[in-house]
Amino acid sequence: MGKVTAKSPIAVRVAALAICAGVGALLARAVLAIPETEPGLAPLVDANLAVSGVKNAVTAVLLNFRGYDTLLEIAVLVLATIGVLSLSVTQTGTWDPIAAQADPVLSALARFLAPVMILVSGYLLWAGEHAPGGAFQAGSVLGAAGVLLALSGYARPIWVSRFALRAAISVGFVVFLATAIGEMLAGGLLLEYPADLAKTLMLVVETWLTVSIGAILISLFIASASPAEELRRRSGGGE
């Protein structure tokens, strides 16, 4: 067992403390200089909410007004997943069970909880239209259900091939990008939804985003979860 609380030399720590004190003072000055009340962009969002296709302002900002951010965000997620899957020495990205001998109580509980979590995920996806919720929250619950199942010893279902898992990881980004380009070809701007189709298109994009985010979170967890010792043994890493 090594020293867990290893620290840097005293000189480094003093220098770091000085830098942090300086940055902290600047930050405090900056945040205190922020005006106390400020309408921000909220009035603009409120004024355009009617044409956005949804009733929840945060969803409208994410999927419509600032759709470009969200498109790039899902791209970042897919890229990170590709990176993590490429870095894992074993092929654990394929959703092997982590717990070889799972606790029977945990297994029974997971069998009971997983369907409920999938239901909650569907509810959050639908609720995002008018209340807090949406693709990212729904995808997180879906991912959590998958992590729970993997920890309880349930392997990747046989009908989910490695190709299918990779397709699920990328489908959200592909659908989002196709929608964005489709809007452009239909005569609008990139990510400019036609007003009458806005709700339908956003729901389609959000549904596939949910599937992707769930698959991404499960893959990120599984690929990082196998014990490091086992990885070293398999790859023959140097001592």
């Binding site: 962009l41 302002a57 945060v58 900002v61 969200t70 965000e73 970042v76 990212f136």
Partner: peptide
Amino acid sequence: DPLPHAMVLTGIVVTVS
């Protein structure tokens, strides 16, 4: 203001990845 909230949501996801 919904805009900073949307930015935090985006930020959380990017932090996770």
